[in-house]
């Protein structure tokens, strides 16, 4: 049957997407507001962008956040891919139930619990709070998301390709790097990007585990928001949203092109 959109379907889509996008759009528009008051339009201006780049503390926080996100996402990608392989390729190994529990729990667990428990752990082993504790905490949280993304790709994976390579005499490690890895690469990249944005975005876990010199951008933004709205934050948000949008669109285009290429090769 040909699915047809009813008026109800169209209305709910339009309203739903308006709800999702209007607040972000308003925020972006008001970042170009000349007035200091965030909700009163005072003409077009880009002054807040200038003020933003002169704000040393904010720039420093952005740099710390970026480094933590890159490092923790890289570690999470390796750990998450291994965990996904373990879950799909190792059958029922001992402690599998505990393992899946530890993979799924951090994703839904309230962040306050994860943040507090990791902090108490770092204090117990006497590790100074700062850059590294936030990085380790983010790695632990985001590796679970990488696992789920890579795992769902491995589930639909055609194993006969691996078997063919092994039959032709390739050792397992070589088979993995020559056959498996290239095939699951898009999901690994997707997992990395997800881990990266989650780390960029995290306020709660970072707040618990941060220390001197490791103030991340969300922590900085949060403390400013509590003091009141500021057009500088609007400008910073607009830049972040712009970067993320460009990133997501290019990632979609790349994966679309690779799908098309593999389809072409298949024919």
């Amino acid at each position: 049957m040909n699915r047809r959109l009813s008026l109800f379907n169209v209305t709910s889509l339009v309203l739903g997407f308006a709800f999702l996008y209007l607040p972000i759009l308003l925020l972006m528009i008001y970042s170009f507001n000349a007035s200091r008051l965030v909700t009163v339009w005072g003409g077009f201006s880009t002054q807040w962008y200038g003020a933003l780049f002169r704000n040393q503390a904010l720039m420093e926080a952005a740099w710390v956040t970026l480094r933590i996100a890159l490092l923790s996402a890289s570690m999470a990608t390796v750990l998450g891919t291994l965990a996904a392989l373990a879950l799909t390729r190792y059958g029922r190994f001992t402690g599998r139930t505990l393992f899946t529990g530890m993979i799924y729990a951090p994703m839904v667990m309230p962040e306050v619990i994860t943040g507090l428990s990791l902090l108490l752990f770092f204090v117990a082993i006497d590790l100074d709070r700062g850059f590294w504790t936030v990085t380790l905490a983010h790695t632990t949280l985001t590796m679970c998301f990488v696992t789920v993304v890579v795992q769902s790709r491995l589930m639909t994976f055609d194993r006969s390709l691996e078997e063919a390579a092994m039959d032709l005499g390739a050792p397992p490690l070589r088979t993995f790097f020559a056959v498996t890895l290239p095939l699951i690469a898009p999901s690994i990249v997707a997992g990395f990007l997800l881990a990266f944005t989650l780390s960029l975005d995290d306020l709660v876990i970072a707040s618990f585990n941060t220390g001197p010199g490791a103030t991340t951008l969300p922590i900085k933004i949060y403390s400013q928001v509590r003091l009141g709205l500021s057009p500088e934050i609007n400008a910073a948000s607009t830049i972040l949203i712009g970067l993320v949008t460009i990133g997501v669109i290019s990632a979609t285009l790349i994966s679309k092109r690779s799908v098309m290429r593999s389809q072409r090769n298949a024919h």
Binding site: I24, I221, V225, L229, L240, I241
Partner: peptide
């Protein structure tokens, strides 16, 4: 896009 920004 940032959770914090969307709430903000």
């Amino acid at each position: 896009t940032s959770f914090l920004i969307r709430i903000y």
